[in-house]
Nucleic acid binder design. Structure first.
Length: 598
RNA sequence: GCCCGCUUAGCUCAGUGGUAGAGCGCAUUCUUGGUAAGAAUGAGGUCAUGAGUUCAACUCUCAUAGCGGGCUCCA
């Protein structure tokens, strides 16, 4: 809601409650719950200073300055108090009052006073229910009894106005839905997300680890994680070759001169690791691959005939991230970008962008993602490059999105200083959105590095450069994939595709034959020759989410067949080795994109 | 970086100011079994690190490191 609506909307516009759409009602319920929370906190801590309490995606929060940290018990207590207020079902009332009056009311509330100073106009909103009063722009239920089903979830520290120069407040988060059922559903979805947490699955399935004592935010890929990564990379490489890219490899460090020219030491230094000095030069670990790709371009005099030039690399970069933001494989300090730079002429640029957008969707679909959204970020206030170029580039991006028939929103002024961009978000099996892909124009580096090509006219021209990453960071993409599938990867990605389960030691010979047969077809297979019983072997395979379990006993050994059980419990019965290999090979080629239940 | 919480076996977690616990996993042995857990035995721990309080610290205090939840989704 825009601030200027304040002056036209009465704060107690509650007359039309029944006419509000569901979304607005929910928003109001959440906002009112925030007030009720603040009331409860003030009851418990009469000296509390309360700051702001907005509606958020699935609920609300409120920030407070309190004499002591809140404990989980406090939340239970607060929730009980809130429910009492709900039960009392008192009216929520609002009115516009002059600032002077508001200052008097909130004279002991420094955060409210600060807010009042920053508000435009002479009147501010004042909302009350029972004895509680708050500075508020409005948007409430009529009575406290209408707020629906809620639950206080957790507390966290939050800076006043999000600025770390300000005081740290205590934020109380709550979730709120229209009905108890909706709330239960949400809680259930959260639990499912927790079960699928890539950090848990990464450990349980032995895919990767981190070793905090030897460097937080740095990922160790285990053999099974490595298998999956290898499949991702292979598919990625093949698709890139097919799409007309060339694959390059560049160093992990470069001398300071390179980073000075690129501008990284000016604009990006705080994300870079400190320099390593040797032989009289300062070397920096690369936070990006672009300057290196540019060197490849600049290695010879280029002709327009060579363009577009598409240079791609799985480039491992290192960026300093503040310790508090690190998170499993999602946010790390060393990661591999599936980076590429497309260098082309002005005439080629639109076609190249369209190709990239179509390519992204193609690639992401390959991994089983089906729903996408895009955003187009335009020129920010501080930017480099002629406005002609910006206009042209923005138009090209928009055109490309239209041609790809991809829904998008426009993020006005959200571009990088060096060019506009398209970001593509994918939706995973739990309906969560992730931003992986980004396609960016770069007006800065071609200029800084004085990149040129010789045109048809025989003179030098500056090329366009498009920077793009499709999976984004391999680590992050892997984590998203892992959570998307809940660890139950489709056959082509599964680190172990089949496990042979001999019922007794008598069947080990046949098991070895079976294994060889499958290995010849490049199926990743293992024999469970532990002393456990069949039931236990099946259970273990199940927990490891191995797609196929191949049980062999006397019956199978006699007939040279194999009993096939799938991860989802389906019993395919007995089949010949040839049929089995055919089945697996076909499924692998199809890349069976079904999201099977983990 | 900052606020709060956490850190005990490979993993998940109990626990106490005075000799360290369980389940899973791992190893060995017995068992040779028909679609999600057969049994026994055993190995495995400077209780994150450092300092302090104490006759005595895994336990209390402080510091450090790491992990987790967050740090404008703006009255």
């Amino acid at each position: 809601m825009a601030v200027d609506e304040l002056s036209t909307t009465a704060p107690h516009d509650d007359a039309a409650w029944d006419e509000l759409d569901e979304e607005e009602k929910l928003r109001r319920m959440r906002h009112s719950a925030a007030h009720i929370l603040a009331e409860a906190v003030l009851e418990m801590f009469p000296k509390a200073k309360y700051a702001i309490g907005p509606t958020i995606e699935n609920g609300f929060y409120y920030d407070f300055e309190l004499p002591r940290p809140l404990t989980p018990d406090d939340l239970v207590n607060l929730e009980r108090r809130m429910k009492r207020t709900v039960k009392r079902n008192v009216p929520i009332e609002g009115e516009w009052i002059p600032k002077a009056q508001a200052r008097a009311i909130f004279q002991d509330q420094p955060y409210k006073l600060e807010l009042i100073e920053n508000l435009d106009g002479e009147l501010v909103g004042h909302f009350t229910h029972a004895k509680f009063e708050d500075l508020c722009r409005g948007g409430h239920t009529e009575r406290t009894g209408q707020v629906g089903a809620f639950k206080l979830t957790h507390t966290a520290g939050a800076y006043w106005r999000g600025d770390e120069a300000n005081a740290m407040l205590q934020r109380v988060y709550g979730v709120l839905f229209r009905t108890q059922d909706d709330l239960a559903q949400y809680v259930q979805a959260r639990e499912e997300a927790e079960r699928r947490d890539h950090r848990r699955l990464g450990r349980d399935l032995d895919l990767f680890s981190t070793h905090e004592q030897y460097g937080p935010g740095l990922i160790y890929w285990h053999p099974k994680g490595g298998r999956i990564r290898n499949e991702i990379e292979n598919a990625w490489r093949n698709e890139h070759f097919d799409a007309g890219y060339e694959i390059v490899h560049t160093p992990h460090v470069g001398r300071s001169d390179l980073w000075e020219t690129s501008g990284h030491l000016d604009f990006y230094a705080e994300n870079m690791y400190p320099s390593m000095d040797f032989e009289g030069g300062d070397y920096y670990l690369k936070p990006m691959n672009c300057p290196f790709h540019i060197q490849i371009y600049k290695n010879s005099k280029r002709s327009y005939r060579e363009l577009p030039m598409r240079l791609a690399e799985m480039g491992t970069v290192y960026r300093y991230e503040r310790s508090g933001v690190l998170h499993g494989m999602m946010r790390v300090r060393g990661f591999t970008q599936d980076d590429a730079h497309i260098i082309c002429t002005a005439d080629q640029v639109e076609n190249e962008i369209v190709r990239v957008v179509e390519f992204v969707l193609h690639l992401l679909r390959l991994f089983g993602f089906e729903e996408f959204e895009a955003s187009l970020s335009t020129r920010p206030e501080k930017s480099v490059g002629e406005s002609e170029r910006w206009d042209q580039a923005e138009q090209v991006l928009q055109h490309a999105l239209d041609r790809a028939e991809l829904a998008y929103i426009i993020d006005e002024g959200g571009g990088a200083f060096y060019g506009p961009k398209i970001d593509i978000h994918l939706k995973d099996a739990l309906g969560r959105k992730w931003q992986c892909s980004t396609v960016q124009f770069d007006f800065n580096l071609p200029e800084r590095f004085q990149m040129t090509y010789v045109g048809e006219d025989g003179s030098d021209h500056q090329p366009f450069m498009i920077h793009r990453a499709l999976l984004g960071s391999l680590e992050r993409f892997f984590a998203i994939l892992l959570e998307h599938y809940g660890g139950a990867f489709p056959l082509w990605l599964a680190p172990i595709q089949a496990v042979v389960i001999p019922i007794t030691d008598r069947h080990l010979t046949f098991a070895a034959t079976l294994k060889d047969e499958l290995k010849n077809a490049r199926i990743r297979v293992e024999v469970d020759d532990s002393g456990e019983r069949m039931g236990n072997k099946i259970r273990r395979a199940q927990l490891q989410k191995i797609p196929y379990m191949l049980v062999i006993g006397d019956r199978e050994a006699d007939t040279e067949q194999v009993s096939v059980r799938q991860r989802d419990g389906t019993d395919l019965g007995a089949m010949s080795l040839t049929d089995l290999v055919d089945r697996l090979v076909t499924e692998r080629i199809d890349r069976n994109q079904q999201v099977s239940k983990p």
